[in-house]
Amino acid sequence: MSTSAKTAKHRHTDHPDVLPAGVAQGVRDLLEDTPRVAHILGTFPTAVYLSVRESAGGAARTRVFALLTADAIRLPCGLVLGVPSSRICLPDLVNAGPVVLGGGALRLGPHTVTGARTLRTRMVVDGAPLAGQIAEAGARLRAIERARSGLPGLDLPGLLAPALRGRREAQRVSRELVGRGPGLTPAGDDVLAGFLVAATAFRLDTDMLLDAVLDRAIGRTPDLSAQLLRHAGAGEGLPQVQTLLTVLTAARPIGPALDAVLRIGHSSGYALASGVHAAAALAHNAARHRRTVRPSPSTGRRGS
């Protein structure tokens, strides 16, 4: 965006004092905790990334969250405003004064962002992924990989399956993927985020892998990416991923849902989708192995 366009936008933007926002499930606790100063990590037209220090079990750690406009990608660490970036200038907003998070609001100088409602960011699926859908998604992803590199892609299911079974394998995979690649969310992290969120939704046991990934992530990957991995481990992800998960378990065309994931970021979408696909493949094998999916606490009441 040119400077003059920014200036023009600024002139037209009259920010109200109170801005309602939808609050991702995984950020609600942070919003309602005691107020503390937040630091700006990065500012973009549709997203501002911020961090606060919090103590988890005695150890201080960085927690990242995002202030997003309505047209931004809905990160599971987001406070999502009801207005698009065409009607609000986030950089002006966050530069209006000290930024304080907590006590039910995010205060930005004279402006207050309030948590008006809770956004569902936890993935929910109904049943196991279907073989045909997994195969279709896999074929489409391989076609993209071939088109990009001319080479067949990694055998992600083969790489990740052992990581669910043993601690050493989990650590090995983490060393291989965490922080691998450029950007705020390296591609290796995106693969893991897609895998973790889908595996959690499909009720695979991800405890060992998640421990290894989060351990490895400290200091080795950007704070935002580490935060998104934590959310993924809690089963929290993007709405596009939710739609893909839903379609993987239903006899519906997979193309639109997969394309929506592929459109995320520059290359993040492909990495996320590959991780989701790998988890679906493993979940399908596990279900076939058991003949039936273990009922989860959330669907156990159903007389299926």
Binding site: L19, P20, A21, G22, A70, V80, L81, G82, V83, P84, A116, R117
Partner: peptide, 8 residues
């Protein structure tokens, strides 16, 4: 509805 951060 606007006050709930929903586009209207």
């Amino acid at each position: 509805v606007s006050a709930q951060a929903v586009p209207v």
